[in-house]
Amino acid sequence: MSKKTKDILKSVGTHVLIYAVLLITLFPILWMVLASIEPQQSIINQNAHGLLEFDATLRNYISIFTEYDFLKYTKNSLIVAFIAVALSLVIGLPCAYAIARFKMRKSSVIVLLVRMIPGISFLLPWFSIFSQLGLRNTYTALILSHMLVALPYIVWIMIPNFESIPVDLEEAACIDGTNRYGAFFRIALRLTTPGMITASLLAFIFSWNNFMFSIVLTGRNTVTLPVAIYDFVSYAYVDWGGLMAASCAITLPIVVLALLLQKYIISGLTAGAVKG
């Protein structure tokens, strides 16, 4: 066998293997999409028909927006995630900068610990505190809890970003007359825009996905999407079609973000694994 045929074979093998892995990875998601356009009768009778032999229907989708108020839930999810990320940036960026510039190793421990604490410990205390402050059934309570999800990601991802800015640049700016706060705003923040996009994206995704805090802290008007999924599981019936349509609707924005901005998301997920 010549080297060329060997190379071609190897390349074919690589492609087959990679796309097979991709198919396995995507299968559950494809199945979700498929089930979301299937009528209930056909979902619960999988043996009776071939995989693709069913009357495709958009009824499940229509029902989640008409019978259930998915537009409102989407709006709630967006409001909570956006504001939580924005506020986390406001308090997280200076914190990450200080940790990076003043080499506060110990403080970064706290940030990481925040990410690791099991969420159930917070639920009851938060609820009673928020109730006493009159924040029950408000976005404020939800946003504060989601900031706890967003903040560690932002700080964690931004520390190496700030570390990678040469100190000389900031010192030069200081000599030019700005103080150190000015250097932070004009130099550091400007140079780490890609890092900020990455951090915000990830924080947004994990806030969007959050279920545990939302289930306890949402009220009638602030229900977010992951909580709304449970609308389809009732005492006497599991509406699988609606459930899958709802799952699709929740996942879709994230999928779009992931496909459009994959570069940033990947660099965020791998933050800490590869230096700067």
Binding site: T25, P28, W208, F211, L225, P226, V255, A258
Partner: peptide, 12 residues
């Protein structure tokens, strides 16, 4: 596409 399982909503 490989990213999707990581970022998709876990409850869903």
């Amino acid at each position: 596409l490989m990213l999707l399982p990581v970022v998709a909503t876990p409850v869903a």
